[in-house]
């Protein structure tokens, strides 16, 4: 084979690999909404919600319970990722990356601020207040923020075609989001805090992707994303949970009750799916860019609707289906992009 065609073939392989990682991210991410929804009805979280709601009201109770659930989610994700690094033999690299706090690790800790207390907490709030399918699709808007930030911040190119695909995906997101909102408005009561959670998820994940890209430039994704979750665990377990306990919420007593088989199993399931969705997500960025990685990863919205329908039998509204279809179309607009354009993702 001559040099030119071998080059083309290699480039194609690289890009399809990037899209494959992003696609797996979408599947794992979509599955994550199953344990994320189920965990709300399991003890101690169910009891915790009722106990706090009796004193402080539903809304505060839901947020506080969501904090504890998110903290446990971060813990199991971190453990799953540590295992992953162990399998790959990357503990050495993990330590080396952690030591480079100034140039490198700080970006992952910043990413964990937007990913954790903003995006993941927001998702759990949306799941608890409105439902898994809504939580999933509400976050579909995150590539707008991610792509725009990546474009202005480090000049990542967005081709016309990619922009079109992202646009269609967003349209799908708006259809799903707007459909639920219109129904709630006509019903007279709108669970605003749930919608706020959805917006937190979208903004948080978009910013996280762009911020993490800064650190990913110069580190290995496997080490990088583990540090991002180490950061999130520090935020939850050393800052927010103790703070809430000091203010008087029974955080520790309920946290200790989480160690029962069913609850643990669901939390571990959440940790594994979420951990590997991140592994795939971060691996796709250097190969196809933050904007595209996020765009294809967006198929999770559709997968989550399918999984929720299969496992819980909750039939989605027509707006969810239409929006989901738009997301698939948008992703394929990006997917069929001519690969020669992607040879260099950034200008020199």
């Amino acid at each position: 084979m001559d040099l030119q065609s071998l080059k083309k073939q290699e480039n194609k392989r690289k890009i399809s690999k990037g899209y494959m990682w992003a696609f797996f991210c979408a599947i794992f991410w979509g599955i994550w909404y199953l344990p994320g929804t189920v965990v709300w009805v399991l003890n101690p979280f169910d009891e915790m919600y009722s106990a706090i709601a009796a004193i402080r009201g539903d809304e505060i109770s839901l947020v506080i319970t969501a904090v504890l659930i998110t903290a446990f989610n971060a813990l199991t994700v971190m453990l799953a990722l540590m295992l992953w690094n162990g399998v790959l033999g990357k503990f050495g690299e993990l330590k080396r990356t952690l030591k480079e706090f100034q140039p490198c690790s700080k970006w992952f800790f910043m990413a964990s601020i937007f990913g954790g207390p903003m995006a993941i907490l927001g998702s759990f709030i949306a799941m608890g207040f409105i439902g898994g399918a809504f939580a999933a699709v509400a976050a579909l808007l995150y590539p707008v923020i991610g792509s725009v930030l990546a474009y202005y911040w480090y000049g990542e190119k967005i081709s016309k075609r990619a922009a079109l695909g992202i646009g269609v995906i967003i349209l799908g997101g708006i259809t799903i989001f707007g459909g639920g909102l219109l129904k709630d408005l006509s019903g007279g009561s709108v669970p605003w805090i749930g919608y706020l959670g959805g917006l937190m998820a979208a903004a948080g994940w978009g910013i996280e992707g762009a911020v993490a890209g800064k650190g990913l430039d110069i580190s290995e994704p496997d080490a990088g994303l583990t540090l991002r979750f180490v950061g999130e665990n520090i935020i939850w377990w050393l800052l927010i949970v103790p703070l809430l306990a000091v203010v008087g919420y029974p955080m520790y007593s309920f946290a200790l009750e989480a160690f029962e088989p069913m609850t643990l199993m669901i939390l571990i399931f959440a940790g594994i799916t979420f951990g590997f969705c991140y592994v795939c997500w971060y691996k796709s960025f250097p190969l196809i860019g933050v904007g595209r990685g996020q765009g294809i990863g967006n198929l999770y919205g559709l997968f989550s609707i399918i999984f929720i329908f299969l496992f819980f039998g909750e039939a989605p509204q027509w707006t969810l289906l239409l929006g989901g279809a738009l997301c698939v179309i948008g992703s394929f607009v990006m997917f069929t992009e001519d690969t020669s354009e992607l040879e260099t993702l950034r200008g020199d």
Partner: peptide, 19 residues
């Protein structure tokens, strides 16, 4: 793969190839 990532991240440029 690390080198590949650095290249697709725009930090290295591919100047020559051979089979």
């Amino acid at each position: 793969f690390d080198i590949l990532e650095l290249a697709s991240g725009g930090m290295l440029k591919d100047v020559e190839q051979k089979v």
